[in-house]
Design a protein around this nucleic acid. Structure first.
Lengths: 358, 358
DNA sequence: CGCTTTCATGTAATCCATTACATTGCAGCG
DNA sequence: CGCTGCAATGTAATGGATTACATGAAAGCG
């Protein structure tokens, strides 16, 4: 078989004319374009990257050839050489949670203004996933990461990678973050309930691993203290941000025979669950029980009655986060900083003064 | 001043030894590891890629060095060489739409089983965005794409790229697709309304550019024909899948003085909007008007009353789409095929027989 | 006219990991 | 002993683009 003549090494088509017809059109290279246009690879590259430094005529010609042959430069090669991808990854725990959608919008707006593309990674709260996506940055497939988990510290590795934490933050991590002042935002919400005349206010907590949830709980407590209402620990129920958790929390409180005229929920989805559970038990919102949520997701406006909630500046959170990331990408020496935005109470239909009954 | 001295161009660190101390730990290379471990780069690469072909002792040693120095192989270089990224991009028009979340879950499950990572791109219906993400595949930054827009044909370029269309499809495009039988699913929904006794059934359409919406409308019409109900074009209102569109549609119909006892909506969000608009006008669901949605998004269960809707097999759609994509990635010659799943009507609380009144 | 600039383009080094092929050493076998 | 075969490792080609540096031609200038 004289096993050498063929060799098959390299691109596998040195002849370049034998089987051209069958071969799919994928994978042209600068070299091919250069050959077809009778110029050097450098000129082709320049014609595409910085057209102004190539003479009008060759530029035209090269562009024609590129179009005719259908050439897309290999981004891997380009990025390898230039050491940047103009790609950033946004990590979100749960795409199903509409809260993040608008944050993403903000991120994308700023990203595009600066020539970055955004790719989304869903982590489902899994550390492994977070790591996997973070490694993409370490492996240079992306320039930076914005994470919306309360668990950034697991991410940064060797030296400081360009990471920004949005919506969440980590207690004493050296990482730039943008988030709202959850303590005071929660406080405002509970103050409002107090102002309406409520004194038995239940609280549905979020995952305790998340500092922002701890803050919301603290805001709730401080507000009660301000109003000189004794804190009843039995009125606090655990939750995990899901609609179902909201339902369960209410069922638990009711089955324990707790009495309350208002519920402050750590997010809107749990508030929706709470409303449903109350309705199921024949209790009316807001006549029997007032409900306040947190986040102001898109659906909050469309519950019946519409949900009173604390609106986070979602778009601004995203924009700000991306802004910080860009700063970091341009100069890896800027020190991490925390940016705190404020959130507003939006009063809709689920809150009213407590009724006489009960 | 003297605004030139700095220049700032290029990688900005040729010296490579002057400021080693200051320099962040980023960017080790096989070469460095090889030097530190006193072996060749080939051995390092092998120790990491196919440990079994390296002697126990060198493997150990190399792994130690890798860990000690903190080395992550440059994925760009690797992917460039191996011509695969093990990354796929899923394009969705709108992350805010909870329908897609579960489809994504399905995609991710299958992807991970086969060693792929999934990145999400939001297109917001913009062709430019779609192209940009599609170009990532052309530029070899990702191996394939699953798109959930009804506009695939804009994507594939030069030869057939690995593209699969999920949830939507394009009439006569040569692209693999997975979607439900929208005609019959819509038919079943309308049949049910008819069965309940409704004869004046309004329809809120989706974007006409989307074939699946055309199909849903066709299903609606066919069902009316089956029931020998004359089709009243004035009972069909345009929509764009948003909650607001649902509200507007109802307001339009009511302001035109149309009379109807049921509304079939092309998706759940418009159904939610419709419910709200009806409530705002003092009409009760389902007592005065029955509502049926489409998709069965997570929130459908939590409206009051809970929404009757057509459930798409979201997870299966995602799994199937990813399955097809993997097939394509393994063998680019498999011919495109369409896979059609079925959808089930879920009866909840927004449907009832028409009331005597009206 | 000769010299310096400037412009357009070409040549080849470079980014970093993978891997085909080459080399070395040693065990096994007739 | 000499040869084959295998295991472990090394050397260098390779992937595809960018870009520093080199070259050559044309233009500007005294």
């Amino acid at each position: 078989m004289s096993a050498d003549g063929s060799k098959r090494k390299g691109q596998g088509r040195k002849g370049a004319s034998t089987d051209v017809a069958k071969q799919p059109v994928r994978g042209r290279t600068v070299k091919e374009i250069a050959a077809a246009a009778n110029v050097s690879v450098a000129t082709v590259s320049r014609a595409l990257q910085r057209p102004e430094i190539v003479s009008e005529i060759t530029r035209q010609h090269i562009h024609d050839v590129v179009r005719r042959l259908g050439y897309t430069p290999n981004a891997l090669a380009r990025n390898l050489r230039t050491a940047r991808t103009r790609l950033i990854v946004a990590l979100l725990p749960d795409i199903a949670n509409p809260f993040f959608s608008e944050v993403i919008r903000g991120i994308e707006q700023v990203a595009h203004e600066s020539g970055y593309s955004v790719l989304l990674g869903e982590t489902q709260g899994s550390l492994v996933r977070e790591q996997a996506y973070a490694d993409m940055v370490a492996a240079r497939q992306a320039d930076g990461i914005i994470t919306m988990s309360p668990r950034v510290p697991s991410i940064p590795i060797q030296g400081r990678l360009p990471v920004v934490n949005a919506c969440e933050y980590v207690k004493d991590a050296q990482i730039s973050s943008v988030f709202v002042d959850n303590v005071s935002a929660a406080g405002v919400a509970v103050d409002y309930l107090v102002m309406l005349g409520h004194r038995d206010i239940a609280f549905i907590a979020g995952p305790p691993a998340s500092p922002i949830c701890v803050d919301r709980e603290q805001g709730y407590r401080q507000a009660l203290q301000r109003a000189e209402i004794a804190i009843n620990p039995a009125l606090t129920a655990a939750g995990d941000f899901s609609i179902e958790a909201g339902e369960r929390a209410i069922e638990l409180l009711l089955s324990q025979g707790q009495s309350f005229t208002a519920v402050f929920c750590s997010n809107d989805e749990m508030a929706i669950g709470a409303m449903r559970a109350l309705n199921a038990r024949g209790l009316r919102v807001p006549d029997d029980v007032s409900i306040v949520g947190f986040d102001d997701i898109r659906f909050a406006r469309y519950t019946t009655p519409a949900l009173t909630t604390v609106a986070q500046p979602k778009n601004a959170l995203g924009r700000e986060a991306m802004g910080m990331l860009i700063e970091l990408l341009n100069d890896s020496d800027v020190p991490p900083r925390k940016r705190i935005l404020s959130a507003d109470l939006i009063v809709r239909g689920t809150t009213a003064p407590p009724s006489r009954r009960r």
